[in-house]
């Protein structure tokens, strides 16, 4: 395994005067004090509520934005591919011309056969103009452009939002197969966890402009324990969230040593883990080994 494909150190982005693009935050910091590493070859889910800073983080990784502070290192623009949330394409070009554009703008890297296959698998007529395509068809063309570039790092911002469940399943399958075959590192964002679960082996939780959780999904799940049972002192464990109903306690903790107590313990599901963190903004950040900068 080679080194990290993305490395962020004290990364911050503040949107300038009069251009409050950080959804839900108005002006100010869209992202602040982010330090993490993403090992190469992973498929990473970038999750968080709307306006958390996911799009900003992806745009910074793509080199589209300049950090306000700190730094983010990753492959250069010739070795990464980025599909923005709104799947921007030139509406006046046909599907064929859009692929020709990919070839003209990526000399020496372009894989015409891959592009052609992804487009024809979707039953797209290559002479159709992009403006006449449906949302799902646009997503397919945008992904064809991204994959045919043979990137080392593939950055996808809400890639499947415009797709019906069947097309989502099919396209995600094609995407994962392609990434696995070429060892591509993938980062894809979503605010719908189920869209990504099963496809991803790595997680970054972004919330309020900060990284809350980072690491291999299995490690993150193993680091947490879900407790149910009578109310009792949770020390010395790190409490992410605890709720009591009557004399019943439900808590998500990061165990420090063995969990000894009157509780039933279980490993949380990914959804339980994420929801507990989103409900408890004060819970400390956890970056597991390999994910710390």
């Amino acid at each position: 395994m080679t080194g990290p494909v993305i490395e962020a150190e004290g990364l911050g982005k503040r949107y300038g005067r009069g251009r409050g693009q950080a959804q839900g935050q108005g002006r100010g910091w869209a992202l602040r004090d982010c330090s993490f590493q993403l090992p190469a070859g992973r498929v990473c889910a970038l999750v968080g509520p709307n306006g958390a800073g996911k799009s900003t983080l992806l745009a910074l990784a793509a080199g589209l934005l300049r950090p306000t502070e700190g730094a983010i290192r990753g492959p250069g623009r010739d070795r990464l591919a980025y599909v923005a949330q709104d799947k921007p394409l030139y509406p006046q070009l046909t599907v064929d011309e859009t692929l020709r554009m990919g070839a003209e703008l990526n000399p020496g890297r372009w894989d015409a056969a891959t592009a052609r296959r992804i487009v024809t698998d979707g039953g797209l007529d290559p002479t159709t103009r992009v403006r006449a395509l449906s949302g799902g068809q646009r997503t397919r063309v945008a992904l064809a452009l991204a994959l045919a570039k043979r990137p080392e790092l593939l950055l996808l911002d809400e890639p499947m939002a415009d797709l019906d469940p069947l097309a989502r399943h099919q396209l995600m399958g094609a995407l994962m197969a392609d990434a696995a075959e070429h060892g591509t590192s993938v980062v894809m964002s979503s605010h719908i966890l189920t869209e990504l679960e099963g496809a991803c082996d790595h997680l970054l939780l972004v919330d309020g402009g900060r990284i809350r959780l980072g690491g291999p999904i299995d490690d993150l799940l193993a680091a947490h324990t879900l407790l149910t049972g009578p109310v009792a002192d949770l020390a010395p464990h790190t409490v992410v969230e605890s709720r009591t109903t009557g004399r019943q306690l439900t808590a998500l903790i990061r165990a420090q040593g063995r969990v000894d107590g009157p509780w039933e313990t279980a490993e949380p599901t990914l959804e339980e883990l994420l929801l507990a963190h989103l409900r408890s903004p004060q819970a400390p950040t956890l970056l597991t080994e390999g994910a710390t900068a």
Binding site: G63, L64, R77, L80, P88, L89, A142, K149
Partner: peptide, 13 residues
């Protein structure tokens, strides 16, 4: 329209 996000993430500078 946001197409700069497409244009500026290709191999050309």
């Amino acid at each position: 329209s946001g197409t700069y996000k497409l244009a500026l993430t290709q191999s050309v500078t």
